[in-house]
């Protein structure tokens, strides 16, 4: 258990560094910018207490904000996403939770459910993120396009991260 916790802490630091130093400098086609750091919130164990989930999301978002001069829009978006997470998980797994899977993964959810899970939560995150950022209603169509494009881009990164993290982390857990 302790090992798992350190693992998450290391991942936290790693994701913040990758986001701030590398991904924030990527902008495809002018304004597409992957927000890979949400991967951490998606990866947290299924049985994590709700309060801890929200707190981790808030702190993570706030640190990203600190580095990208965006006040607290990432914090707001990540907290909203964490708030939606239990509902989406219930939606995806149905009433019964498969044999207590430790954390969301392709093997515990199934491919289709996993893709839905990632896209739904990334969309929730980006919707709040971009509307908080713009905060005016005159630019709604433009903002919607940004949300959709960026959701696709981020979801792609996150799904890739899930594919790569599936095997080694599974070994560690056993």
């Amino acid at each position: 258990m302790l090992n798992v916790r350190w693992g998450y802490l290391a991942l936290f630091v790693f994701l913040v560094l990758v986001q701030v130093l590398v991904l924030n400098n990527i902008h495809l086609g002018g304004y597409m910018n992957p927000q890979l750091y949400v991967f951490l919130v998606l990866l947290l164990p299924l049985n994590i207490p709700g309060l801890l989930l929200l707190s981790v999301a808030f702190v993570l978002g706030l640190i990203i904000d600190m580095f990208s001069d965006s006040l607290a829009i990432h914090a707001g978006a990540t907290v909203f996403m964490a708030f939606c997470r239990p509902t989406v998980i219930r939606l995806v797994t149905g009433q019964f939770v498969a044999e207590d899977p430790e954390r969301p993964s392709f093997s515990s959810f199934g491919t289709f459910s996993m893709i839905f899970y990632v896209i739904a939560l990334v969309l929730a995150h980006h919707a709040v993120l971009f509307f908080l950022e713009v905060f005016r209603f005159s630019e709604v169509p433009h903002t919607l396009i940004r949300i959709l494009l960026n959701t696709g881009f981020t979801a792609l990164f996150v799904l890739l991260a899930f594919i790569f993290s599936d095997r080694p982390a599974g070994k560690k857990a056993r």
């Binding site: 709700g50 309060l51 929200l54 707190s55 999301a57 808030f58 829009i73 914090a75 707001g76 708030f83």
Partner: peptide, 19 residues
């Protein structure tokens, strides 16, 4: 508590944005 903590944190975030 889950819902209230969510409301609280979201309110803090939005307040910071409005600052």
């Amino acid at each position: 508590q889950f819902f209230f903590l969510f409301l609280f944190l979201e309110a803090v975030a939005i307040m910071l944005v409005f600052q």
